[in-house]
Design a protein around this nucleic acid. Structure first.
Length: 803
RNA sequence: GCCGUUGUGGCGGAAUUGGCAGACGCGCUGGACUCAAAAUCCAGUGGUGGCAACACCGUGUGGGUUCGACUCCCACCGACGGCACCA
């Protein structure tokens, strides 16, 4: 009887369901292990072959840890708010809730067909009111703590989808999602003060077991920079300009100043003669998109305001310019320019013929700014100092003369949290006609998203909720009328805390029980794509730290260990896409080869973290191996083969114990590909053996079970064991079985292998050297030469150095 | 431009601490089984030379350290990802 994957996989999936094999208890004295997948957006496309990769990895770890005696929490859920559903609803006239629910059913069915050991009792859905009640609750807490505020902001506006995008969602001036060109537009927005947590978000990265690349991306994104604020008086005016600089040591080299065109002081300092030029320049800048101001335009522009600033350190008059290479949104929107030692200032100074004054020795070349370290010159009390010392002394001087102070700045901006969309969590706020704003009372949460049969753009830039009058308009007991907030939350909201809800998914009076949170947090393993390096992972860390400050969660960080799975590419080494025709549908693979084959193949392709191309031959190879495992134990009639026996002739002792050790070690380190290859070696050896000791076969099937759980359950029973392998304790190995009495040592001459010999394991150095010198081929290479040195490592090799 | 990752047979990849490069799989070649084929089982398979023993070359390139380097150091080249006037 051949290996019939369909029948076997259905049988065991039903068994796990019927027996609630993977339902997780909160009350146990076992150590815990919490493994989470980045939950998917249930798109209409269904599952992609990339999904099972990460899911299989966490599933293998979960099954392994169960067998190792851990209480494992391994849940799944749906990140189900999002723009595609809204767009589809607008097109078809359906409600997003209805087909989102269909999509979820489809996703769940597909995921279940992969044999993943989720506790489905804990399934969560961000669009479920009992879930988003708590998303809204967190928002209210942020509001109460002053971390959620309204602001008129220049936002990234997608004019076609009519949505506001976060900076992170804009790539090369286009919407990451729609590809539409993004414009600047001023809109009232809800903003979360993530910058209040900037320092902690940088500092706490150090203790996390995350890929260095991701940590570095977050550090760069937050962009902490240390420098100084310096105050410049404006000549003949009652105004003071504050600039930010990381190089206060070059203050003596400042030759001009620049304000961002939007800077609030521009109007008050501009001279009559320059008024028109400045107005023209600002008008020209306002018409430009962000893309045109940055990426497309490397050529510097600007105009002189006619005003002068006074350098506090030496009283020099510096012309004040406006230029768009200075950003209003960073620092104070004003800089002191030191063209001798800053590339951008240098370029600007060259173009507009401004003075260049070196204050650091080392810049011999007049064609570029010298940005390196060196001895300070032309700098009065800083002369002769190096960069670090000069920075410290300059700051001391500024502080002593009330002309400035040390200052830390961040690139990170506050998080624009509102979207002009229907299909998101309603922001639980009411704007009253008396001008006040209030939260929806906590006991009235969740504020339900009203059911809408037909979604239409409001046309005003507001979300479609603005059309739903019944929902929109409210009246207070005292007769004052109000209007609900029509903005909804971004998709990042629900995904910023979902891993907490799995811990206590049905709690209706708390986000989650603190005792349960204390037991389960942190997440021990979090697996997902690297595309979430700064978006989701930064927001989730921010909310988590906020909840930590509130005392809601017991840990400072949510995810102790993060692993990014690599991408599965098409067979042509390119990213899978419909247009390239290289998409592989997991349903087809599961049907034709089975979920176990898909799992084994995706884990065997290469290291989890690496991108690797799909191969049709590869998947058949994995299937062939599972067939081989089946045939090793089961004969053509479907009976256990006779050579599976209780006697042990000993020929598999070493390879069996080696395999247990290697697979165990590899699993601890998530090296799934090499674990599988070791099991292949074992099977190859087992095929050559006349007798297969049943204890070894049991142990091998246990090693296989995390990878190919259905097949393993089936063979486990056929080997005469009681049903269900999931909680049988993991096999152990015997160190003494790993070593032979004899070892093969190699003989080298000048580091090249010239011979080998099998010798007793405990041979001493002298005997090894004697054996080496006696070797015929070694003789050929040392004869007639002087032996300079002999290196002998017992049990490994002898190296004879001759000349 | 800056930051990060990475480079090994025809292909995916292994080599955990500086110690036999290429485990395992795919592909290919040969053999067994078969009327034949497929499937399966067994064996071989980095390149060059040689009947062979074996020799020489070989981990992106060029140098270096070392008895010994895929592994460590320096310089460079290519691929991928991120950031990109952040003062």
């Amino acid at each position: 009887m051949p290996y019939e994957h369909q029948q076997i996989e259905q049988k065991w999936q039903k068994f796990w369901d019927d027996n609630q094999t993977f339902a997780t208890s909160d009350t146990t004295d076992k150590p815990k292990y919490y493994a989470v997948d980045m939950f998917p957006y249930p798109s209409g496309q269904g599952l992609h072959v990339g999904h099972p990769e990460g899911y299989t990895a966490t599933d293998i770890m979960s099954r392994f840890k169960r067998a190792k005696g851990f209480n494992v929490l391994h849940p799944m859920g749906w990140d189900a708010f999002g723009l595609p559903a809204e767009q589809y609803a607008m097109k078809t006239g359906h409600n997003p809730a209805d087909f989102t629910s269909q999509n979820i059913d489809h996703f769940r069915e597909q995921i279940k067909s992969l044999g993943l050991s989720y506790d489905w009792n804990r399934e969560i859905n961000t669009t479920d009111p009992s879930y988003y009640k708590w998303t809204q609750w967190i928002f209210e807490k942020l509001y109460e703590k002053g971390l959620a505020y309204e602001s008129n902001m220049m936002v990234n506006w997608d004019p076609i989808d009519r949505v506001v995008l976060a900076n992170e969602e804009v790539i090369d001036g286009k919407s990451e999602r729609s590809g539409n060109k993004v414009e600047r537009k001023a809109l009232r927005q809800w903003v979360l003060k993530i910058t209040a947590y900037a320092d902690r978000l940088v500092d706490d990265l150090d203790d996390l077991d995350w890929p260095e690349a991701i940590k570095e991306q977050q550090r760069n994104w937050i962009g902490r920079s240390k420098g100084a604020a310096v105050f410049f008086n404006v000549d003949h005016a009652d105004a003071k300009i504050e600039v930010y600089t990381t190089r206060p040591d070059t203050l003596f080299g400042a030759t001009y100043m620049v304000l961002a065109p939007e800077h609030e002081l521009v109007d008050s300092i501009v001279t009559a003669e320059q008024k028109q030029a400045v107005a023209d320049y600002r008008a020209a800048i306002a018409a430009k998109s962000d893309l045109e101001r940055t990426d497309l335009n490397k050529d510097k522009t600007g105009v002189f305001t006619g005003a002068y600033g006074i350098n506090p350190i030496n009283g020099e008059k510096l012309p004040i310019w406006i230029a768009d290479y200075v950003l209003a949104s960073y620092g104070t929107g004003a800089i002191m320019a030191v063209p001798a030692h800053d590339d951008r200032d240098f370029e600007f100074a060259k173009k507009f013929d401004l003075a260049i004054k070196p204050v650091i020795a080392g810049g011999e070349n007049d064609d570029v700014a010298y940005t390196g370290d060196g001895v300070h010159i032309n700098s009065d009390f800083l002369d002769g100092l190096d960069k670090a010392t000069a920075i410290d002394q300059a700051i001391d001087w500024l502080e002593a003369h009330q002309a400035g102070h040390a200052q830390t700045n961040f690139r990170l901006r506050d998080w624009i949290f509102s979207r002009q969309r229907y299909w998101g969590e309603p922001i639980p706020v009411i704007h009253w006609e008396d001008g006040t704003t209030s939260l929806v009372p906590e006991n009235e949460l969740p504020l339900l998203l009203p059911h809408a049969t037909e979604l239409r753009p409001s046309g005003s830039g507001e979300s479609p909720l603005a059309n739903l009058t019944d929902w929109l308009e409210v009246t207070r007991d005292d007769g004052v009328k109000g209007r609900r907030e029509t903005n909804t939350m971004p998709q990042w909201a629900g995904s910023s805390w979902y891993f907490l809800r799995y811990i206590d998914p049905h709690n209706d009076h708390q986000l989650a029980d603190p005792e349960k949170l204390k037991y389960w947090m942190n997440v021990d393993l979090y697996v997902g794509g690297a595309e979430h390096a700064v978006l989701h992972l930064l927001y989730a860390r921010f909310w988590h730290k906020f909840l930590y400050d509130l005392g809601v969660v017991p840990t400072k960080e949510p995810f102790q260990k993060l692993v990014n799975q690599g991408m599965i590419l098409g067979a042509n080494h390119e990213k899978m896409s419909k247009s390239k025709g290289n998409v592989v549908n997991p349903d087809d693979i599961v049907r034709e080869y089975g979920a176990d084959t898909l799992r084994v193949y995706e884990m065997f392709m290469g290291p989890l973290t690496q991108s690797k191309p799909w191969s049709e031959e590869g998947i058949t190879g994995s299937r062939r191996w599972l067939d081989r495992v089946w045939r090793l134990l089961i004969d053509d009639e479907g009976q256990l083969r006779d050579h599976v026996t209780t006697v042990n002739p000993g020929d598999l002792d070493k390879i069996y114990h080696q395999t247990v050790k290697k697979v165990t070690d590899d699993l601890e380190n998530m090296r799934f590909n090499t674990a599988i290859s070791q099991m292949m070696v074992f099977v190859n050896d087992a095929y050559k053996s006349d007798a297969l000791p049943v204890t070894y076969m049991n142990g091998f099937i246990q090693l296989l079970a995390p990878f190919a759980p259905h097949l393993a359950e089936e063979l486990w029973v056929r080997l005469g064991n009681r049903e269900s392998i999931s909680y049988v304790s993991w096999p152990t190995y015997d160190d003494t079985k790993l070593v032979d009495d004899t070892v093969e040592i190699i003989f080298q001459v000048n580091g090249k292998v010239r011979g080998k010999a099998t010798v007793a394991r405990d041979i001493n150095q002298d005997d090894m050297i004697t054996a080496a010198k006696a070797d015929d081929n070694v003789q050929n290479f040392i004869m007639g030469k002087t032996v300079r040195k002999v290196i002998a490592i017992p049990g490994k090799f002898v190296n004879i150095v001759v000349s």
